[in-house]
Design a binder for these strands. Structure first.
Length: 302
DNA sequence: GTGACTCTGTTGGAATTAAT
DNA sequence: ATTAATTCCAACAGAGTCAC
C-alpha cells in the first residue's frame, strides 16, 4: 500500500498502528512485538511515521533515579486518518480518535501503565498464535470513558450496590477472551504489581495491608456479581479470574502467604505469576492459584 | 571521571519483493 | 531472469543517570 506522501505502509506497520490506536500509546519495543517486527525495523518505521506527522511522542528524556525513559509514541489525527483510509480494518473495530494528553509528558505512573500494556500485548500475541482463541475486548485503567455526566476510568466499578469510595474498585486492566469454536467467553482482570513503595504505603507504613485489602475487594467483587452486569454487553459471565502479576517468584509466594487467611473457596478465581513468565508465554502453564498448598502451574485456558 | 546501567538513532548490508 | 527498490536487522555510536 502506498500513500501520496511517499509513505508506504506494510501489513505489519498497519498492525502496529492499530495497536497504538487500541492502547493509546506504545514504546518501540511494544510496537515491535505487536507488529511482529524486530526492534530496529520498528524503530525505523516509527521515526518515518513521526516525520510524516502521523505520530507524536513523549518520553525519551532523562529522569532522576532512572537513566533515560523510553520513547512513547501516540497516534496523531493524521495517523488515525491514515489508519482508517489505508487499512482494510473495519472502522468500528478501529474506533474513534482520542487526542493524547501531550502536556502529561512523563509521570511515574507511566512505568506502571507501560507494564500493564506489556502484559496485554503479551496476551494479544499469545492469542494470535492460537487460532481457536480471539481477544474480544480490552479495557485499561488509564483510558477514560463518559459515564453519564462524569468521566471515569474505563475499568472503574463497585463491589457493592452502594457507589461509595470504599466500594470502588479499579482493576489495572481487563479483557474478554473467546473460544471461537465453542463460543464460550471468559472475563479476566489484571493487576500489575510494581513491587515498589506506593505513596499509600509510605504513609501507612504497612505494605501488606494495601495488598490484602485489594485482594479482599476482588473477593467482594466476585461475590457481589456486579461484574456480570457491568460486562454483560460482552458476554454472560458467572465468574471472573483475577490475574496478579509481579516481579520475582519470591514476591509471588509472599503475596500468596499474605492473603492466606481469605476464603479458600474463592482461591480458584485467582492466578499469580511473574512478569517475566507472563511476557514470554501468557497462555502457557505459568499461573499459580491462591492456595498456598497448591504449587501446580496452570494455563489460563485448556 | 569511569564503567555499568537505561535508552535511542544511524549505518550498511542481507533478504524480499516489484518492475522491466 | 536481471535489476532496482524496499524492508528488515545486527552492530555500533550517542546521550542520560547512578554508584563508585
Amino acid at each position: 500500500m502506498s500513500v501520496a506522501a511517499g509513505l508506504t505502509l506494510t501489513r505489519s506497520t498497519v498492525l502496529g498502528l492499530f495497536f497504538i490506536q487500541r492502547y493509546r500509546f506504545l514504546t518501540i519495543d511494544q510496537f515491535a512485538r505487536a507488529a511482529g517486527m524486530k526492534r530496529p525495523a520498528a524503530s525505523d518505521q516509527l521515526r518515518v511515521l513521526e516525520r510524516h506527522g502521523a505520530l507524536g511522542h513523549f518520553g525519551n528524556v532523562g529522569m532522576r533515579g532512572y537513566g533515560k525513559t523510553p520513547k512513547v509514541y501516540f497516534l496523531k489525527r493524521k495517523g488515525y486518518e491514515l489508519l482508517l483510509r489505508e487499512s482494510d480494518i473495519p472502522p468500528d473495530l478501529i474506533g474513534s480518535h482520542k487526542e493524547t494528553f501531550v502536556e502529561a509528558k512523563w509521570s511515574p505512573q507511566m512505568f506502571h501503565r507501560l507494564h500493564t500494556v506489556d502484559l496485554l500485548i503479551a496476551a494479544e500475541v499469545a492469542i494470535r498464535s492460537r487460532p481457536n482463541l480471539s481477544m474480544v475486548r480490552t479495557f485499561t485503567e488509564y483510558r477514560r470513558v463518559k459515564r453519564g455526566t462524569q468521566i471515569a476510568r474505563e475499568t472503574t466499578d463497585f463491589v457493592g450496590t452502594e457507589e461509595t469510595p470504599e466500594n470502588r474498585i479499579i482493576p489495572d486492566a481487563a479483557f474478554v477472551l473467546e473460544n471461537v469454536e465453542t463460543g464460550r467467553r471468559g472475563l479476566f482482570f489484571v493487576e500489575m504489581d510494581m513491587a515498589t513503595e506506593r505513596i499509600v504505603s509510605t504513609i501507612t507504613r504497612d505494605h501488606r495491608i494495601t495488598l490484602h485489602f485489594k485482594i479482599m475487594q476482588y473477593d467482594r467483587y466476585l461475590q457481589s456479581g456486579r461484574f456480570a452486569k457491568t460486562y454483560a454487553p460482552f458476554g454472560e459471565f458467572r465468574f471472573f479470574t483475577l490475574l496478579f502479576v509481579t516481579f520475582g517468584e519470591a514476591r509471588v509466594e509472599n503475596i500468596r502467604r499474605a492473603v492466606h487467611g481469605l476464603p479458600a473457596e474463592l482461591a480458584a478465581y485467582y492466578r499469580f505469576t511473574t512478569f517475566e513468565l507472563a511476557s514470554e508465554d501468557f497462555l502457557g502453564p505459568i499461573w499459580k492459584t491462591r492456595s498456598i498448598n497448591d504449587n501446580e502451574r496452570y494455563p489460563l485456558v485448556r
